[in-house]
């Protein structure tokens, strides 16, 4: 962990000697490999945010509903089959999901939106969302199952239905664990690389429109690494600066998760 931070900071310092922090944060163009070089991280951030938000809009509701169902309603046999199945899906390589996004989901979406370009954030985000469902649902379910039985029994004794018990008793009691699951989902979405690199194109593009192609921070790192950049050049340093930005974003979410867990932990 320390080595990671040290490495990223070391190369980034060299980068920030060339490019001021102000330019890095405010310039609206990211073209470090062109002659007319601009080093504004905003286009990469916008791509990352748009694709992550789409992914989370798919993964969080579906993952939560699946978790509630498996933990509170599903018969034993369904759970015994569904849990390992979801676990298997979590193990499918991300490059395979990228293939699905580009060659299966995008053509489907083009039937609905004929003007949709071949590379776009929408299909990358949707597939990413599907990909994250197993992580969210399995952690959420674990949290809900850890809620002691007597809370549920108390709720039933008061005349609550199963649904009311699940929503008003079990979920609040499992809040810290559910928050941890959501945070992990967000980290996955922000750091996911191959799906966006394959399906969203690699053109940095300051846009909030999911129908357009754009690059994320991770996709940019892939794009640069595919080329042959000499060690120590400014292009080489940009990927470390981009990586540091990415690490800081995920770190912020991890800290938020830690605080939420500490503050809302219920002890029985």
């Amino acid at each position: 962990m320390l080595a990671i931070v040290a490495m990223l900071v070391k190369e980034s310092i060299v980068f920030f000697q060339h490019v001021s922090l102000w330019e890095f944060l405010t310039d609206t163009q990211w073209t470090p490999l062109f002659d007319d070089a601009h080093y504004g991280i905003l286009p990469l951030i916008s791509g990352t945010v748009v694709s992550s938000v789409i992914a989370l809009m798919v993964a969080l509701p579906l993952g939560t509903i699946i978790a509630i169902y498996l933990s509170e309603f599903a018969p034993f046999s369904v759970r015994e089959i569904a849990k390992p199945f979801l676990e298997l899906l979590g193990g499918v390589p991300t490059v395979v999901y990228g293939y699905f996004a580009l060659l299966f989901v995008t053509p489907l979406l083009q039937i609905i939106f004929p003007e949709l370009p071949g590379f776009n954030l929408l299909s990358a985000g949707l597939v990413m969302g599907i990909m994250i469902i197993p992580y969210v649902s399995s952690m959420t379910e674990d949290a809900m199952r850890a809620v002691p039985m007597n809370l549920r029994e108390g709720s039933y004794a008061m005349g609550a239905t199963r649904f009311q018990t699940a929503i008003r008793v079990v979920m609040p009691a499992a809040f810290s664990g559910i928050a941890a699951a959501y945070i992990l989902g967000i980290s996955r979405a922000v750091g996911e690389t191959m799906v966006v690199a394959i399906a969203a194109g690699m053109q940095p593009n300051l846009t909030w429109n999911p129908m357009e192609p754009a690059a994320t921070i991770t996709a940019y790192i892939v794009q640069v690494s595919l080329g042959d950049l000499p060690h120590g050049s400014i292009g080489y340093q940009t990927i470390f600066a981009a990586g540091l930005t990415l690490l800081l974003i995920t770190l912020v979410f991890n800290i938020i998760g830690h605080v939420l867990r500490k503050r809302y932990r219920e002890i029985y």
Binding site: M1, A3, I4, M7, L8, K10, E11, I183, L184, S187, V190, G191, E192, T193, T218, I221, V222, S225, I239, F240, G243, L246, L247, T250, F253, N254
Partner: peptide, 18 residues
Amino acid sequence: TNLAGVPSIIYGLLALGL
């Protein structure tokens, strides 16, 4: 525990430098 949340591409950057 935190390392599990670090995106895999960051490990790639570490390996590239180190």
